[in-house]
Amino acid sequence: MDAEVLHLYELMVRSRFFEELTKVLWEDGLIPGELHLGIGTEAAIAGVVSNLIDGDAIASDHRSTPEFIMRGVNPSSILLEMMGHPGEESLCAGLGGHMHLFSKEYLMATSGIVGASLPGAVGFALAAKYKKTDNIAVSFSGEGSYNQGHALESLNLASTLQLPVLFVCKDNGWSITSKSSDFTGGNLVQRANGFGIDGISLNGLDVEEVYNAIQVIIPRIRKNKKPYFLHVLVTHREGHFTTDPLLNPKDTLKKYGASITKSFLTPKGANLGKRIKSVGTILSSLMEFRKQVKSKNDPLYITRRKHQELAQEFDEVDQNIHREIKKILERTLEIYGGKSK
Protein backbone atom coordinates (compact mmCIF):
# COMPACT_ATOMS: atom_id res chain seq x y z
CA MET A 1 0.00 0.00 0.00
CA ASP A 2 2.87 2.40 0.71
CA ALA A 3 3.93 2.20 -2.92
CA GLU A 4 0.42 3.00 -4.02
CA VAL A 5 0.13 5.93 -1.66
CA LEU A 6 3.43 7.29 -2.90
CA HIS A 7 2.38 6.84 -6.51
CA LEU A 8 -0.90 8.65 -5.90
CA TYR A 9 0.88 11.36 -3.98
CA GLU A 10 3.29 11.78 -6.86
CA LEU A 11 0.46 12.18 -9.38
CA MET A 12 -1.11 14.82 -7.16
CA VAL A 13 2.10 16.72 -6.57
CA ARG A 14 2.99 16.74 -10.25
CA SER A 15 -0.37 18.26 -11.06
CA ARG A 16 -0.16 20.71 -8.14
CA PHE A 17 3.30 21.99 -8.98
CA PHE A 18 2.46 22.21 -12.65
CA GLU A 19 -0.66 24.23 -11.95
CA GLU A 20 1.15 26.45 -9.48
CA LEU A 21 3.62 27.16 -12.25
CA THR A 22 0.81 28.03 -14.65
CA LYS A 23 -0.56 30.39 -12.04
CA VAL A 24 2.72 32.28 -11.89
CA LEU A 25 2.99 32.39 -15.66
CA TRP A 26 -0.57 33.64 -15.84
CA GLU A 27 0.13 36.38 -13.32
CA ASP A 28 3.16 37.35 -15.37
CA GLY A 29 0.90 37.76 -18.37
CA LEU A 30 2.38 34.78 -20.22
CA ILE A 31 -0.85 32.80 -20.20
CA PRO A 32 -3.78 34.58 -21.83
CA GLY A 33 -7.45 34.31 -21.00
CA GLU A 34 -9.20 33.03 -17.92
CA LEU A 35 -7.37 30.32 -15.98
CA HIS A 36 -9.38 27.73 -14.04
CA LEU A 37 -7.14 25.65 -11.82
CA GLY A 38 -7.82 22.20 -10.46
CA ILE A 39 -5.85 22.85 -7.28
CA GLY A 40 -7.83 21.04 -4.59
CA THR A 41 -9.27 18.43 -6.96
CA GLU A 42 -6.10 16.35 -7.35
CA ALA A 43 -7.11 13.51 -5.04
CA ALA A 44 -10.38 12.86 -6.85
CA ILE A 45 -8.70 12.92 -10.23
CA ALA A 46 -5.65 10.87 -9.23
CA GLY A 47 -7.90 8.22 -7.68
CA VAL A 48 -9.68 7.81 -11.00
CA VAL A 49 -6.92 8.35 -13.54
CA SER A 50 -4.57 5.90 -11.80
CA ASN A 51 -7.10 3.17 -12.61
CA LEU A 52 -7.31 3.85 -16.33
CA ILE A 53 -5.62 1.75 -19.01
CA ASP A 54 -4.47 2.48 -22.54
CA GLY A 55 -7.39 3.25 -24.79
CA ASP A 56 -9.65 4.65 -22.07
CA ALA A 57 -11.04 8.06 -22.99
CA ILE A 58 -11.64 11.24 -21.00
CA ALA A 59 -14.02 14.08 -21.72
CA SER A 60 -13.54 17.06 -19.46
CA ASP A 61 -14.46 20.69 -18.89
CA HIS A 62 -12.83 24.07 -18.40
CA ARG A 63 -10.75 22.76 -15.48
CA SER A 64 -8.95 19.82 -17.06
CA THR A 65 -5.24 20.40 -16.52
CA PRO A 66 -4.83 17.84 -13.69
CA GLU A 67 -6.17 14.95 -15.74
CA PHE A 68 -4.00 15.86 -18.73
CA ILE A 69 -0.91 15.93 -16.53
CA MET A 70 -1.78 12.75 -14.63
CA ARG A 71 -2.63 10.84 -17.80
CA GLY A 72 0.89 11.54 -19.04
CA VAL A 73 0.32 14.01 -21.83
CA ASN A 74 3.57 15.87 -22.50
CA PRO A 75 3.56 18.69 -19.90
CA SER A 76 5.66 21.00 -21.99
CA SER A 77 3.18 20.72 -24.85
CA ILE A 78 0.37 21.59 -22.43
CA LEU A 79 2.25 24.56 -21.07
CA LEU A 80 3.02 25.87 -24.55
CA GLU A 81 -0.62 25.48 -25.46
CA MET A 82 -1.71 27.40 -22.39
CA MET A 83 0.77 30.12 -23.31
CA GLY A 84 -0.78 30.32 -26.75
CA HIS A 85 2.40 29.39 -28.55
CA PRO A 86 1.50 28.92 -32.20
CA GLY A 87 3.91 26.11 -32.94
CA GLU A 88 3.81 22.39 -33.51
CA GLU A 89 5.32 21.75 -30.06
CA SER A 90 2.11 23.04 -28.49
CA LEU A 91 -0.56 20.46 -27.74
CA CYS A 92 -3.06 22.14 -30.07
CA ALA A 93 -0.78 24.49 -32.02
CA GLY A 94 -1.95 27.41 -29.88
CA LEU A 95 -5.44 27.26 -31.34
CA GLY A 96 -7.29 25.71 -28.39
CA GLY A 97 -5.95 27.13 -25.13
CA HIS A 98 -6.47 25.93 -21.62
CA MET A 99 -10.27 25.50 -21.82
CA HIS A 100 -10.02 23.60 -25.08
CA LEU A 101 -7.25 21.04 -24.70
CA PHE A 102 -7.33 18.03 -27.01
CA SER A 103 -5.11 14.99 -27.25
CA LYS A 104 -6.05 12.58 -30.01
CA GLU A 105 -3.29 10.26 -28.86
CA TYR A 106 -4.73 9.93 -25.34
CA LEU A 107 -8.37 10.19 -26.42
CA MET A 108 -8.88 13.29 -24.31
CA ALA A 109 -11.27 16.06 -25.27
CA THR A 110 -12.44 19.12 -23.37
CA SER A 111 -15.00 21.85 -23.73
CA GLY A 112 -15.65 25.23 -22.16
CA ILE A 113 -19.37 24.69 -22.60
CA VAL A 114 -20.67 23.60 -19.22
CA GLY A 115 -22.20 20.12 -19.43
CA ALA A 116 -20.50 19.10 -22.67
CA SER A 117 -18.24 16.56 -20.94
CA LEU A 118 -21.17 14.21 -20.47
CA PRO A 119 -22.25 13.71 -24.10
CA GLY A 120 -18.52 13.71 -24.86
CA ALA A 121 -17.88 10.70 -22.64
CA VAL A 122 -21.00 8.91 -23.87
CA GLY A 123 -19.76 9.04 -27.47
CA PHE A 124 -16.31 7.81 -26.51
CA ALA A 125 -17.94 4.93 -24.63
CA LEU A 126 -20.17 4.10 -27.57
CA ALA A 127 -17.12 3.81 -29.80
CA ALA A 128 -15.32 1.65 -27.23
CA LYS A 129 -18.26 -0.71 -26.93
CA TYR A 130 -18.89 -0.86 -30.67
CA LYS A 131 -15.25 -1.74 -31.27
CA LYS A 132 -15.61 -4.54 -28.71
CA THR A 133 -12.80 -3.26 -26.51
CA ASP A 134 -12.67 -3.31 -22.73
CA ASN A 135 -12.20 0.40 -22.64
CA ILE A 136 -14.30 2.89 -20.76
CA ALA A 137 -14.85 6.63 -20.97
CA VAL A 138 -14.70 9.06 -18.07
CA SER A 139 -16.50 12.36 -17.87
CA PHE A 140 -15.08 14.97 -15.50
CA SER A 141 -17.19 18.00 -14.72
CA GLY A 142 -18.39 20.16 -11.86
CA GLU A 143 -21.62 19.78 -9.94
CA GLY A 144 -22.99 22.85 -11.71
CA SER A 145 -22.94 20.98 -15.01
CA TYR A 146 -25.51 18.50 -13.72
CA ASN A 147 -28.21 21.11 -14.17
CA GLN A 148 -27.52 21.34 -17.86
CA GLY A 149 -30.06 19.66 -20.13
CA HIS A 150 -27.61 17.78 -22.31
CA ALA A 151 -25.84 16.48 -19.22
CA LEU A 152 -29.01 14.88 -17.90
CA GLU A 153 -29.90 13.54 -21.33
CA SER A 154 -26.49 11.91 -21.40
CA LEU A 155 -27.12 10.06 -18.15
CA ASN A 156 -30.25 8.63 -19.71
CA LEU A 157 -28.51 7.84 -22.99
CA ALA A 158 -25.65 6.01 -21.30
CA SER A 159 -28.12 4.11 -19.17
CA THR A 160 -30.38 3.03 -22.01
CA LEU A 161 -27.58 2.20 -24.44
CA GLN A 162 -25.71 0.46 -21.61
CA LEU A 163 -22.42 2.19 -22.10
CA PRO A 164 -19.20 1.94 -20.09
CA VAL A 165 -19.04 5.49 -18.76
CA LEU A 166 -17.82 6.76 -15.41
CA PHE A 167 -19.47 10.10 -14.71
CA VAL A 168 -17.27 11.94 -12.23
CA CYS A 169 -18.98 14.91 -10.61
CA LYS A 170 -16.43 17.15 -8.89
CA ASP A 171 -18.48 18.99 -6.32
CA ASN A 172 -16.82 22.05 -4.80
CA GLY A 173 -20.20 23.46 -3.82
CA TRP A 174 -19.94 26.44 -6.14
CA SER A 175 -20.38 27.38 -9.77
CA ILE A 176 -18.71 30.75 -10.24
CA THR A 177 -20.53 32.83 -7.60
CA SER A 178 -23.53 30.54 -7.17
CA LYS A 179 -23.75 28.29 -4.15
CA SER A 180 -24.77 25.03 -5.73
CA SER A 181 -27.05 23.85 -2.95
CA ASP A 182 -29.30 26.80 -3.81
CA PHE A 183 -29.47 25.75 -7.45
CA THR A 184 -29.66 21.97 -7.38
CA GLY A 185 -32.93 20.25 -6.65
CA GLY A 186 -32.63 16.99 -4.73
CA ASN A 187 -29.49 14.96 -4.42
CA LEU A 188 -27.20 14.20 -7.33
CA VAL A 189 -26.56 10.53 -6.53
CA GLN A 190 -30.28 9.97 -6.32
CA ARG A 191 -30.69 11.88 -9.55
CA ALA A 192 -28.34 9.41 -11.26
CA ASN A 193 -30.21 6.55 -9.58
CA GLY A 194 -33.36 7.92 -11.13
CA PHE A 195 -31.85 7.21 -14.53
CA GLY A 196 -31.05 3.67 -13.50
CA ILE A 197 -27.39 4.45 -12.80
CA ASP A 198 -25.66 3.29 -9.62
CA GLY A 199 -23.69 5.92 -7.81
CA ILE A 200 -21.77 6.81 -4.71
CA SER A 201 -20.67 9.95 -2.91
CA LEU A 202 -17.08 10.07 -1.63
CA ASN A 203 -14.73 12.46 0.07
CA GLY A 204 -12.75 13.52 -2.96
CA LEU A 205 -10.12 15.15 -0.78
CA ASP A 206 -8.94 11.75 0.37
CA VAL A 207 -7.09 10.09 -2.47
CA GLU A 208 -7.12 6.63 -0.91
CA GLU A 209 -10.84 6.69 -0.37
CA VAL A 210 -11.38 7.46 -4.06
CA TYR A 211 -8.70 5.07 -5.25
CA ASN A 212 -10.00 2.14 -3.22
CA ALA A 213 -13.56 2.63 -4.38
CA ILE A 214 -12.56 3.10 -8.00
CA GLN A 215 -10.51 -0.08 -7.97
CA VAL A 216 -13.81 -1.90 -7.63
CA ILE A 217 -15.99 0.42 -9.68
CA ILE A 218 -13.97 0.67 -12.90
CA PRO A 219 -13.52 -3.10 -13.45
CA ARG A 220 -17.25 -3.44 -12.96
CA ILE A 221 -17.93 -0.80 -15.63
CA ARG A 222 -15.52 -2.55 -18.00
CA LYS A 223 -17.18 -5.89 -17.46
CA ASN A 224 -20.87 -4.97 -17.25
CA LYS A 225 -20.83 -2.16 -19.81
CA LYS A 226 -22.96 -0.01 -17.61
CA PRO A 227 -22.49 3.59 -16.54
CA TYR A 228 -21.66 4.60 -12.99
CA PHE A 229 -21.95 7.93 -11.19
CA LEU A 230 -19.20 9.10 -8.86
CA HIS A 231 -19.87 12.15 -6.75
CA VAL A 232 -16.74 13.52 -5.09
CA LEU A 233 -16.42 16.46 -2.74
CA VAL A 234 -13.53 18.69 -3.79
CA THR A 235 -12.38 22.27 -3.31
CA HIS A 236 -11.11 24.93 -5.69
CA ARG A 237 -8.36 26.43 -3.63
CA GLU A 238 -7.75 29.13 -6.22
CA GLY A 239 -11.42 29.97 -6.55
CA HIS A 240 -13.35 29.79 -9.80
CA PHE A 241 -10.38 31.19 -11.66
CA THR A 242 -7.08 32.86 -10.86
CA THR A 243 -7.48 36.07 -8.88
CA ASP A 244 -11.10 35.24 -8.16
CA PRO A 245 -12.37 38.34 -6.37
CA LEU A 246 -14.38 36.13 -4.02
CA LEU A 247 -11.22 34.76 -2.45
CA ASN A 248 -10.08 38.20 -1.56
CA PRO A 249 -12.51 39.86 0.86
CA LYS A 250 -11.30 43.30 -0.14
CA ASP A 251 -12.01 42.52 -3.76
CA THR A 252 -15.37 41.03 -2.92
CA LEU A 253 -16.31 44.25 -1.21
CA LYS A 254 -14.85 46.35 -3.97
CA LYS A 255 -16.63 44.48 -6.72
CA TYR A 256 -19.96 43.77 -5.09
CA GLY A 257 -19.97 46.01 -2.04
CA ALA A 258 -19.36 49.28 -3.86
CA SER A 259 -22.19 48.87 -6.28
CA ILE A 260 -24.42 47.72 -3.47
CA THR A 261 -23.55 50.74 -1.36
CA LYS A 262 -24.31 52.98 -4.27
CA SER A 263 -27.67 51.39 -4.71
CA PHE A 264 -28.44 52.11 -1.06
CA LEU A 265 -27.97 55.77 -1.63
CA THR A 266 -30.36 55.95 -4.53
CA PRO A 267 -34.04 56.43 -3.75
CA LYS A 268 -36.99 54.27 -4.82
CA GLY A 269 -37.20 50.50 -4.99
CA ALA A 270 -37.39 48.25 -1.96
CA ASN A 271 -37.49 49.75 1.56
CA LEU A 272 -34.29 50.05 3.54
CA GLY A 273 -34.84 47.06 5.81
CA LYS A 274 -35.38 44.80 2.85
CA ARG A 275 -32.32 46.17 1.11
CA ILE A 276 -30.08 45.55 4.08
CA LYS A 277 -31.39 42.02 4.38
CA SER A 278 -30.88 41.09 0.74
CA VAL A 279 -27.41 42.59 0.65
CA GLY A 280 -26.46 40.86 3.87
CA THR A 281 -27.56 37.54 2.42
CA ILE A 282 -25.44 37.96 -0.68
CA LEU A 283 -22.31 39.06 1.11
CA SER A 284 -22.37 36.45 3.83
CA SER A 285 -23.02 33.74 1.28
CA LEU A 286 -20.11 34.95 -0.85
CA MET A 287 -17.82 34.99 2.14
CA GLU A 288 -18.55 31.30 2.67
CA PHE A 289 -16.83 30.68 -0.65
CA ARG A 290 -13.53 31.12 1.16
CA LYS A 291 -13.95 27.99 3.23
CA GLN A 292 -12.48 26.16 0.27
CA VAL A 293 -8.98 27.38 1.04
CA LYS A 294 -8.66 26.02 4.58
CA SER A 295 -5.59 23.82 4.71
CA LYS A 296 -7.43 20.95 6.35
CA ASN A 297 -9.26 20.71 3.00
CA ASP A 298 -6.07 20.34 0.97
CA PRO A 299 -5.75 16.82 -0.46
CA LEU A 300 -1.95 16.90 -0.28
CA TYR A 301 -2.02 17.94 3.35
CA ILE A 302 -4.57 15.23 4.13
CA THR A 303 -2.43 12.49 2.59
CA ARG A 304 0.69 13.67 4.36
CA ARG A 305 -1.06 13.86 7.69
CA LYS A 306 -2.53 10.40 7.30
CA HIS A 307 0.84 8.86 6.50
CA GLN A 308 3.28 10.64 8.74
CA GLU A 309 5.55 7.60 8.59
CA LEU A 310 6.17 8.43 4.91
CA ALA A 311 7.18 12.03 5.56
CA GLN A 312 10.67 11.54 4.21
CA GLU A 313 9.47 9.78 1.06
CA PHE A 314 6.92 12.52 0.48
CA ASP A 315 9.67 15.11 0.75
CA GLU A 316 11.68 13.24 -1.82
CA VAL A 317 8.73 13.14 -4.18
CA ASP A 318 8.29 16.88 -3.71
CA GLN A 319 11.93 17.51 -4.53
CA ASN A 320 11.94 15.25 -7.57
CA ILE A 321 8.79 16.73 -9.00
CA HIS A 322 10.06 20.19 -8.30
CA ARG A 323 13.15 19.44 -10.37
CA GLU A 324 11.03 17.84 -13.06
CA ILE A 325 8.73 20.86 -13.33
CA LYS A 326 11.70 23.19 -13.39
CA LYS A 327 13.10 21.29 -16.36
CA ILE A 328 9.75 21.43 -18.10
CA LEU A 329 9.66 25.16 -17.58
CA GLU A 330 13.17 25.61 -18.93
CA ARG A 331 12.45 23.52 -21.98
CA THR A 332 9.15 25.30 -22.55
CA LEU A 333 10.64 28.75 -22.30
CA GLU A 334 13.38 27.76 -24.72
CA ILE A 335 10.82 26.81 -27.33
CA TYR A 336 8.59 29.77 -26.52
CA GLY A 337 11.48 32.23 -26.59
CA GLY A 338 12.97 30.69 -29.72
CA LYS A 339 9.83 31.57 -31.55
CA SER A 340 9.78 35.21 -30.65
CA LYS A 341 13.43 35.70 -31.71
Binding site: F183, S259, V279
Partner: peptide
Protein backbone atom coordinates in the same frame (compact mmCIF):
# COMPACT_ATOMS: atom_id res chain seq x y z
CA UNK B 1 -29.79 34.23 -15.46
CA UNK B 2 -26.71 32.61 -13.96
CA UNK B 3 -24.97 34.60 -11.22
CA UNK B 4 -27.27 37.62 -11.55
CA UNK B 5 -27.41 37.88 -7.77
CA UNK B 6 -23.75 38.91 -7.87
CA UNK B 7 -23.31 40.36 -11.36
CA UNK B 8 -26.32 42.59 -10.77
CA UNK B 9 -25.80 43.09 -7.06
CA UNK B 10 -26.66 46.77 -7.33
CA UNK B 11 -30.09 45.82 -8.60
CA UNK B 12 -30.59 43.10 -5.99
CA UNK B 13 -30.54 45.65 -3.22
CA UNK B 14 -33.42 47.59 -4.75
CA UNK B 15 -35.38 44.94 -6.53
CA UNK B 16 -34.54 41.75 -4.66
CA UNK B 17 -37.77 39.97 -5.54
CA UNK B 18 -37.36 40.75 -9.23
CA UNK B 19 -33.93 39.14 -9.65
CA UNK B 20 -33.95 35.39 -10.31
CA UNK B 21 -30.57 33.69 -10.30
CA UNK B 22 -30.71 30.38 -12.14
CA UNK B 23 -28.80 27.12 -12.36
CA UNK B 24 -26.64 26.51 -15.44
CA UNK B 25 -29.66 25.54 -17.52
CA UNK B 26 -29.87 27.89 -20.49
CA UNK B 27 -32.28 25.80 -22.53
CA UNK B 28 -34.70 25.85 -19.65
Amino acid sequence: GEDVHTNRSALVARFSDRIFPTPISEAS
